[in-house]
Computed example of a mutant assay.
Amino acid sequence: MQINFYRVRIPFLRPFTTSFGTENYREALLFRLVHDGIEAYSEAVTSPIPDYGYEDNATAMHIIGDFAAKYISDLPDPSVFMERARGIKGHNMAKAALEMLLWDYHSKVNDQPLYRYIGKSRGYANVGISIGMAKIEEMLEQIEKAVSMGYKRIKIKIARGREGLVREVRDAFPDIPLSVDANGDYTPSDMPRLKDLDRYDLEYIEQPFPGDDLIYHSRLKKEISTPVCLDESITSADKARKAFDIGAADVINIKPGRIGGFTESLKVAEIARENGGHVWVGGMLETGIGRAFNIAFASLDLVDYPGDTSPNEKYFSRDIVKNPFRMKNGIIEPYHDPGIGVRIDEESLLRYLVDAGTISV
């Protein structure tokens, strides 16, 4: 048995800027498994350079091809694969690409849409939007359009020294559900800057300190009234449990492709509920394949906050799926066909293709 991989490069409609830098395209690793007439797909959420975390496209291909792929030769249950892969330390994004490939495969074997196969679902995902840093006029224009389209939460990216963006947005839109995401750009010496954000009535401040920190997030939470959301800091269910134990989080942004897949993400969501916390599903600028996984997870009853699950027409002029998601009144329904339900646009796949090959399993 083999896994086909495809590396594609899709340009963004506009540059997307965070505290990490500016991205002009999504370079994605896509995987396809064919067995007994069933085609399963997945996507690694890595990027060409290790800016978000230590993983990148090259490390993902190394871990998958040289170590992890052998663990799916008998197409095990996703949880069995994760148990087998425990010896691979870290590399959640690489492992998630295979774990989620198995979720798609097994939900198709069982002739169920993925969102029903993974757990109790409300049948739709509440949708928020993430706005990258740009000239304030451009950001306000994007927000106005998003509000008119019915998005249920607006999130803007911020960085140390650019807190003025929050004031400008709140002045222009005093009543919208608004949150901010710092992507770990602040240090403990910036506590006064972060405390000052209390005045803007935010839904939460996302990941103010670097991803390896829980302690200073706990201290910040004691000093501000705005809820604290953790993203990069939550790499496992164990980390989520510790975050709630020491009072470091009110909210968790679950990115299944970053946490290690659905098996671990379900545990994180359960821990948040047990501790009175809240959960939403974030994105990593995925193609329609990765977005389909996110929407399926975001439809679960365990997920109670709107996530960063915009239709991909926000990012790309043309996706690699024939049936891109459409949003209505701030909600998106997952596909009802078996598995993730996407139909691949082979013409687009070839158009954006940079590299392709096979991995022996």
Rank of each mutant, 00 (worst) to 15 (best):
R193E: 05
A248N: 07
S236K: 13
C229T: 08
L230F: 13
A159M: 03
R167T: 01
A249P: 07
G247N: 08
E203L: 10
N253H: 12
Y204I: 15
S236L: 09
P227Q: 13
I246G: 10
R241N: 15
A243L: 01
G247V: 09
I156L: 02
A243D: 03
N183G: 11
A249N: 07
I224L: 01
R162Q: 09
Y204T: 15
L214D: 00
D198F: 13
E163M: 00
G161T: 03
D250Q: 14
R160A: 12
Y200C: 09
S225G: 11
N253K: 07
Y216A: 02
D250W: 08
F209D: 15
K157A: 04
D238H: 15
K195S: 03
I176C: 15
S218G: 01
T235M: 10
P174L: 04
I176A: 14
G247I: 05
I224A: 05
R167I: 00
K239W: 08
E232T: 01
V228G: 01
D181E: 07
R219F: 05
P174M: 04
L194H: 02
K239V: 02
E203V: 03
T187Y: 15
L214I: 04
Y216D: 07
I246V: 08
R170F: 09
A172K: 13
K255C: 11
A240L: 12
V228W: 03
D190W: 00
I158H: 03
I205D: 05
R193L: 14
R241W: 07
L165W: 09
N183I: 05
E206F: 01
L230P: 01
D198E: 08
G164H: 08
E163V: 07
G211W: 06
I224S: 11
P227G: 14
L178W: 14
I224E: 02
K157G: 06
G164M: 07
K239N: 04
L165F: 04
L194A: 00
D181C: 05
P210R: 06
K222L: 12
E206R: 02
D175Q: 15
D190I: 05
T226W: 13
V251R: 02
Y200E: 02
G247E: 03
K222A: 14
D181V: 10
L194M: 03
D185E: 14
H217G: 01
K239S: 02
A249I: 09
I254M: 07
Y186W: 04
L202E: 08
Y200V: 02
K255S: 10
P177L: 14
E232V: 04
M191Y: 12
R170V: 07
K255L: 10
D238V: 15
S233E: 03
E223P: 00
D213F: 00
V228N: 05
M191N: 03
K255I: 09
I176F: 15
T187E: 15
Y200P: 06
L202M: 13
I234M: 11
R170L: 12
I252N: 12
K222N: 13
Y186L: 06
D171L: 11
N253W: 13
D231R: 08
D175S: 14
K239P: 00
S233N: 04
Y216P: 02
I234S: 03
D175V: 13
S236T: 00
R170N: 08
C229R: 08
